[in-house]
Amino acid sequence: MNTVSYDGSFDGLLTAVFEVYEYKIEQPFICKTNIASVSLFGKLHCVHTDETKSDRVLKKLKDKLSRNALLQLRKTFLSEIKDIENVLLRYIQYVLANKISVENNFSHPDVLMLQQTSRKVDREKHRMEAFVRFQCTKDNLYYAIIQPDYNVLPLVSKHFEDRYADQRWLIYDGIRKVGLYYDLEKVEEVFMHFETDLNNKDQLKAIYDEKEELYQSLWQQYFQSVNIKARKNTKLHIQHMPKRYWRNLVEKKVFNKQ
């Protein structure tokens, strides 16, 4: 087995795929540079991300795959699941080896894996669109922290840009330490380090708009009022709103404190 290491970017992965073909690497095993280890009898091949190479792979894939399948490929990559690079490599090899379109052959394990993984990522993306809770600061910035299981920030950008076009907002991924900032003109990726625990009431008062506390408490009130006690169904509640998301949900904070 020969280890192929890359920098962790999508372009990097496509470059690695290109070089597997270019150098006819046998039994390749792709992994990120920082965790690359060489097997006893194998060699290490270091990939330097090269856009001309990744573009060529992408172009070839565009000829072979539908828009949807291409998107699935990217979403699967963003899942950051261990060894997903090698699933993607095998998938690409399978697609390129066939003259006809094979993206719907769900009886093939890698095709099925891509379909299922991209769905998981999609679900997480959708959850983030639902569970982002903006808090308004004194200078009118709407600010939210998320801790998604997968790296979905790049996928939600357009949704929030289209929807909140008239307010400045910042969504910060507390796990990957990267944020999206919209300045009324465009969305930018920003890297920074943030205190992710801003749930403290005193801090709230210092940073946030004077109305912020009112609207948070109104939302909590509303959330309690629409519940029908006679229909209590905790299992369903938790199934739809898993506990790991609660720390960033205004309406669940009230219950945490009790």
Binding site: A165, K232, M241, E251
Partner: peptide, 26 residues
């Protein structure tokens, strides 16, 4: 409904933003 003239909001497939303790979506 599209967001008009850089205003507020749009509509699409619909999002359930929260679920009450009876499991119904909000």
């Amino acid at each position: 409904r599209k967001n008009k003239n850089k205003g507020l909001g749009n509509t699409g497939n619909g999002i359930c933003h929260a679920y009450t303790e009876d499991g119904r979506c909000v």
